[in-house]
Amino acid sequence: MQDEHTATLLDYYTRHQPSTQWRGFLTALAEEFETQLDTSQLRVLMARIGARFATNYPAGECATLDDLASFLNSIWSELDWGFVRLAEKDEFLSIEHCCAPLAAFGERAAPWTAAFLEGAYQHWLHELGAGSLALQQYESSSAHAYEFRLLNAR
């Protein structure tokens, strides 16, 4: 028997197969990047690319977490980039992004590719007024998800 999360992932993968046409190119690009920059520099670069990407999709009016989730999911769905779940916790806001096609960069690029999402989310959250809060990536409990937490920047 599948849990709801697994069923959602399998449904998503069934409807949105990742394109293989870019994998060889993206893997070669990632390998070249790694010869020029270290992991921390690559994370900064990818975060900047994510923020630049986000400028093409202004957040507009998001008064509630449901509004924000709808806004984010409309973008990712339109681009076949997975989906996001938001969860308000006592000390942070959890952003879990599932099924992003970042694996196309190759397994070695995993330590830095998710910074693209981090940069995009940081941009949107800053645009919505969370400028004094910091977004950080955390280890996700799912192999198909990236988790980010919005925390007080102390």
Rank of each mutant, 00 (worst) to 15 (best):
Y57Q: 10
I49L: 14
D80R: 07
W22L: 15
A100G: 05
Q137A: 07
F53A: 04
Y146T: 12
M1T: 11
I49D: 02
V44G: 04
T55K: 10
D3H: 10
C98E: 06
D66R: 12
W76R: 15
P111S: 00
C98I: 05
S77F: 09
Q136D: 11
D80W: 06
E34T: 01
G129F: 02
E127Q: 14
A63V: 04
G24Y: 09
L72S: 02
H16V: 11
A87G: 05
I95G: 01
R43W: 05
P111H: 01
L86P: 02
A63F: 06
T55F: 06
A120T: 02
Q21W: 15
G50T: 08
T55L: 13
R149N: 04
A153T: 09
L79M: 05
Q137L: 03
G82L: 06
A69Q: 14
L37T: 07
L45R: 11
F71S: 03
H144V: 04
S140A: 13
A143W: 08
M46G: 03
R52I: 08
K89L: 07
A114S: 12
A145N: 03
G131K: 11
S142Y: 15
S70T: 13
L151H: 12
L86D: 05
S77N: 13
P111V: 02
Q41R: 12
Y13M: 15
T14H: 15
L133K: 12
I75A: 02
F105I: 02
S77I: 10
R149S: 03
N152W: 04
Y13Q: 15
F25E: 05
L42F: 05
T14S: 14
R108Y: 07
D90F: 00
E118V: 04
G50L: 12
E96I: 07
Q2K: 14
E118D: 03
E147H: 13
T6A: 09
A130F: 10
D11Q: 15
G60I: 01
A143F: 10
Q136N: 11
E32A: 14
